[in-house]
Simulated scan of single mutants.
Amino acid sequence: MSTQEQEERTIRCLIAKVGLDGHDRGAHVISRAFRDAGFEVIYSGLHRAPDEIVQAAVQEDVDVLGISILSGAHNTLVPKIIAGLEEYDAFEDTLILVGGIVPDDDREELLEMGVSAVFGPGTPMEDTIEFVRENVHERK
């Protein structure tokens, strides 16, 4: 696929709320910002299990998986999602983003396991959108 074809193709995103975290304002804000930027956005809804998120990402054939998490369970839940994506051979083709409250010490661990970026509160939407455009994987 040429660079021009890649730019013309709509970027498909799944914004997911994993676990018992019920704080979804940030997920709604980023969903709207992505939609306004021209991305196709699917929102998982609240309280999704890691396997539900994996199934949705695979079935919807998304380019970007944005995981919104404020519960502090990122070190438990994100690895389960990554493992599930790997089982479906979808990990390499999916840009994985984590947004929410993540301590600095945990950010590095998430990046090492394959998360592409961690965005905390106050990150300008333009920065996140630009990151996606610059880093979304070329589809096979």
Rank of each mutant, 00 (worst) to 15 (best):
A90F: 11
G120Q: 12
S31M: 09
R48I: 06
G84E: 00
V98N: 01
I101C: 01
A117V: 10
G72D: 03
S44H: 00
I129D: 04
A73L: 13
H23N: 08
G26T: 06
D21M: 06
E52L: 10
S116F: 14
E134R: 10
L77M: 11
K140P: 12
R133P: 02
P50M: 04
M1G: 13
P124E: 11
F91N: 01
R35P: 07
Q6I: 12
G66Y: 04
I82V: 13
D89Q: 13
V62T: 07
A56S: 09
R133T: 12
V102M: 02
S71H: 03
M1N: 10
A16R: 01
A33K: 10
G100I: 00
P79M: 01
V136W: 08
V18C: 09
V132Y: 02
R32K: 14
F131P: 00
A37G: 07
G114A: 09
Q4K: 10
V136G: 04
R107Q: 01
M125K: 15
D105G: 04
E138R: 15
R35Q: 14
A27K: 07
I101L: 05
G99R: 02
V115R: 04
F91T: 00
I42M: 06
E60C: 07
T94N: 07
L14Q: 05
V29W: 14
N135Y: 15
G120I: 05
L85I: 08
S116H: 13
C13R: 03
I15W: 10
E40R: 14
I15E: 02
R107A: 01
V29Y: 15
G22R: 11
G45F: 08
D127Q: 13
E60H: 10
D93H: 14
T76W: 09
T94V: 12
I82W: 01
V102I: 08
G122F: 07
K140S: 13
V98Y: 05
G120C: 08
I81E: 00
F131W: 11
H28V: 05
A90S: 14
T128E: 06
R25N: 15
T123H: 03
R48E: 06
I69G: 02
I42S: 07
E126S: 11
T3E: 12
F91Q: 04
G38Y: 07
V64C: 11
G45V: 12
I69T: 12
P124T: 07
A16N: 02
G26V: 09
H74C: 08
D89V: 08
T128I: 13
D63A: 01
R35S: 14
V29K: 12
G66S: 10
P103G: 00
R139H: 14
S71Q: 06
D63E: 07
L20G: 03
A73G: 07
T3H: 14
V18S: 11
V41T: 06
I30M: 13
K140M: 10
S116Q: 09
M1F: 06
F131H: 05
Q6K: 09
T10G: 07
R9K: 14
D24H: 07
P124Y: 11
A57C: 06
Q55S: 09
R9M: 13
